[in-house]
């Protein structure tokens, strides 16, 4: 248990045990998903499914933790599997190199939590609908420039529909996706997820957290 020593003061033994048996799904293994995967494995989550149909390309290198100069053209799911083996081989990792809409239904119904690490509005909304249908909580994160948002989406709440614009690209098309914003957003997502999985907090559903690294602010809005 030495490797969890620095978790226990924060999570408690009972919280840590809950993580060992927790099942999560990470949809998108890019800027957000790579950090979520890394932290969820290190904190001790027992079962992780990673979904991403893409391979790495040079524009990923500024922020995507799973990418390096040797992994150009390599499947993101393959790199995720290798990383889990290096970091915490006890975690059972299942990689799906398809779109989330092509994944089997039982993946969602068996999940304790799903992480939305996608990068387009239609994909995010379709994932939210899948999770709602499967009665599964969704942790949403999105970034653009210095700025990001994180939300815990309850099944049936329709929160993501209220958050997303009907048309047009998000902030990232204009402002980019720098590494520090991606890492912070992913950390906030993981913190929300760990609180739910450990039973530390059940109060943060349908609340959106916004952060702006330019002015250093973090704001929570009840929706």
């Amino acid at each position: 248990m030495d490797r969890y020593q620095r978790n226990l003061g924060t999570l408690g033994a009972e919280g840590q045990r809950k993580l060992f048996s927790s099942r999560i799904v990470i949809v998108g293994l890019g800027g957000l998903g790579g950090h979520v995967l890394e932290q969820m494995a290190r904190v001790g989550v027992g079962y992780i499914t990673g979904i991403d149909p893409d391979v790495f390309e040079p524009s990923n290198l500024n922020r995507q933790l799973l990418s390096d100069v040797d992994s150009m053209g390599v499947s993101k799911v393959q790199r995720a599997k290798e990383r889990i083996q290096q970091v915490r081989p006890e975690t059972v990792f299942v990689g799906i190199d398809k779109r989330h809409t092509d994944a089997h239904e039982e993946i969602w119904s068996q999940a304790d939590l799903v992480f939305d690490c996608l990068d387009s509005i239609p994909d995010r909304l379709s994932l939210a609908q899948i999770c709602s249908d499967a009665d599964c909580i969704l942790i949403h994160g999105a970034i653009g420039g210095w700025y990001g948002q994180v939300a815990v989406v309850s099944p049936g709440s329709g929160l993501l529909t209220r958050l997303c614009p009907e048309t047009g690209p998000g902030l990232e098309k204009e402002l980019g996706t720098p590494p520090f914003t991606a890492a912070l957003c992913a950390s906030l997502m993981v913190a929300e997820g760990v609180k739910l999985l450990c039973g530390i907090s059940k109060e943060d559903r349908d609340r959106v957290r916004y952060f702006d690294l330019q002015d250093g602010s973090l704001r929570s809005i009840d929706m």
Binding site: G30, L118, I143, G144, T177
Partner: peptide, 11 residues
């Protein structure tokens, strides 16, 4: 009044 634009990026 605070007005926030939505963020979408992540990948």
């Amino acid at each position: 009044v605070y007005i926030f634009p939505p963020a979408i990026g992540g990948g």
